[in-house]
Amino acid sequence: MHEEYTKSEFAAQTALTDKKNLGIIYVLCVCLSMSNTISKHAIKIENLTKRFEKVTAVDDLSLEIGWGELFGLLGPNGAGKTTVINILSTLLEPTNGVAAVADHDVVFGADEVRKIIGVCPQEPAFYQHLTGRENIELMGDLHEVPKDVLKDRVETMLKKIGLEDDADRRAGQYSGGMIRRVSTLMALISDPKVALLDEPTVAMDPVSRRAVWDFIRELKSNGKSIILTTHYMEEAEELCDRVGIIDQGKLIALGSPKELMEEHHAEDLEEVFIKLTGKKLREGF
């Protein structure tokens, strides 16, 4: 069912094609035993549906996101973006369909999924009485990032995102933009293979937003897969390799920003959305 090569399949295939090179096969097997499987997709969603009583938040959504891809999930408030993120984060179970991160089912392999994801929730969740640095370090500890690595990484990340001077102040005293930046670092301190960023730049000042954009770009350049939900079309156009537009839980368009604009003869993604749905993307808020 899954488009994957299991360890045994891959080893057998390699052995058949190159029986003589046993050394390479051995090395490959060792590498495979460490990762167990090689998944083709970072994220795979098939016929995903989520209902809350009578409300269908996500309706038969299918999606594949590759490794190293920065995927933008666009849609107005209530479109189902956060529900998708919550399902991929293992916080919600689907009503129907399946979702997998690195081939780990989000329901049955939730523990494995949590080891490889970094989640930045829409509403920044942080401990007000801890400092920014302590909040970030706590998440690193929960992911068991080696102590020395964690220390260096926190320093580096704080500098990159422009928080090094305020890192030792209590987070409760931060401005909204600073809190969002801390929240982003909390999600990414574990160096996750898959980052799920739910509107990380909403209500941010332009300087903070630019800093987060640079940060996200760097993540992508390091081969991370990223799902980014956003209201901001310029953000999607600037950052995303591909975008999926969802409305009322349904995926109504999928492709690169350029492809979608060409296909719909639009000047920007906002116009694409208007042409597809007949309404403005930011009507809902």
């Binding site: 984060s89 293992t90 916080l91 523990d111 949590r114 080891k115 994801i117 989640v119 929730p121 969740a125 998440m139 929960l142 992911h143 068991e144 909390m186 574990s190």
Partner: peptide, 8 residues
């Protein structure tokens, strides 16, 4: 919820 997305 946030802690629920970690290996905790």
């Amino acid at each position: 919820k946030r802690l629920g997305t970690t290996p905790l």
